[in-house]
Design a protein around this nucleic acid. Sequence first.
DNA 1: ATTGAAAATCTTGTATACAAAATTCTTGAC
DNA 2: GTCAAGAATTTTGTATACAAGATTTTCAAT
Lengths: 218, 218
Amino acid sequence: MSERRADTIADTLEEMIFTGAFNDGDRLDETRLAAQFNVSRTPIREALGRLVASGLAEQIPRRGVFIRQPGPVELLEMFETMAEIEGVCGRLAARRISEPALADLDAANALCTAAIEAGDTDAYYRENERFHHRIYREAGNAFLEQEALRLHRRLKPFRRMQLRVRGRMAQSMAEHEAIVAALREGAPERAAQALRAHVAVQGEKFHRLLSGLRRAAE
Amino acid sequence: MSERRADTIADTLEEMIFTGAFNDGDRLDETRLAAQFNVSRTPIREALGRLVASGLAEQIPRRGVFIRQPGPVELLEMFETMAEIEGVCGRLAARRISEPALADLDAANALCTAAIEAGDTDAYYRENERFHHRIYREAGNAFLEQEALRLHRRLKPFRRMQLRVRGRMAQSMAEHEAIVAALREGAPERAAQALRAHVAVQGEKFHRLLSGLRRAAE
DNA sequence: ATTGAAAATCTTGTATACAAAATTCTTGAC
DNA sequence: GTCAAGAATTTTGTATACAAGATTTTCAAT
């Protein structure tokens, strides 16, 4: 890996931000964090630099770096962007996907369904992620894949919010099946459309997302 | 702006990378750069961190950071991704664009055409950029807009290569007109299609790009 | 001459020291 | 009591010092 301290610290801080250990606007005090991590300010600064670069925090020149949690508007924008990028991946994948990959998507869906029946939420998230990541991969564009993974990762902490709606998981699985069907038939636009609709935040999901945000803001 | 030295140094280094002052694989020696910029290693390290974060360089743990110029494959992937993102912006913009924005696009096109006739390449690039940036804006999604701008900026140094083809500028303008027409009619898919085709690298452009790369590699 | 090991050198990563800027606190005037 | 100006204190940004790991060089043995 990279420079030992600085990077593990950055990972830890990211995790803390994702799990809500900080509130929007909180200042990340270098000296305090240095003491907290039993380390000098130098690796802390490098870690903070990484957070700023990935948009999790904001740096004001001679003032410090502050946590920057996305508000409702930005969150919707990020989800819309994710939906569009997934749509793009789907459109490209419909033309490029291989037979083993289709089998793999089917397998992921089967495991997803099993996880729902078993009530195993962790397994569900894991297989759901595998499904989506596989589609990014099958777009056949490593750069696009990286971008998709980046955004997917960024949205991870917010994705759980929107899956709590009753029956959402079952509906989600039906959508997965439709997506695979479109990919299998090599229907680019239908695949794109199905993925966009699957990822987009709308209706009940929207309300859930907002109330989740409101709760997190307290 | 941000921390004075570190950020101006990062900007300078980015510019140097873009203008080809470094070759792929070159090591960015901290002490050498420190001497060169008349500064200590600390701001250099922060600047290098920024380069690594934006993908312009690669960091190998206890070895240093190295310039990482995209090869032909990655470049094509980046252009394909750009084409798709522009397509997305166009699709969204077709539903959201305002009348003044359409007028602005027309204005940019007029100035573009004038620049071609005057042989003013700089003006052409400027107005062409204004055209595209305006479409990103009119997608009505600030997050997506930032992503589009980021990638557009990243590809800037390579874009000039592909515009040298004889008659390409005139054809490009015709495509711009078609794009505006689709946006004006509120035809999302046609706008998306037109933008994808406009940005995509294909045929003669492809050869130009490759030979440009080959030349740059010497 | 080639190969291998050990020492010397170089380079990164971290800690500490210093400087400049910003914020906070104090003090005085109204 | 409020407000403002200036001093004191924090805090960031930069420089330097030190430590650990990596690379290169040296030198001997085969």
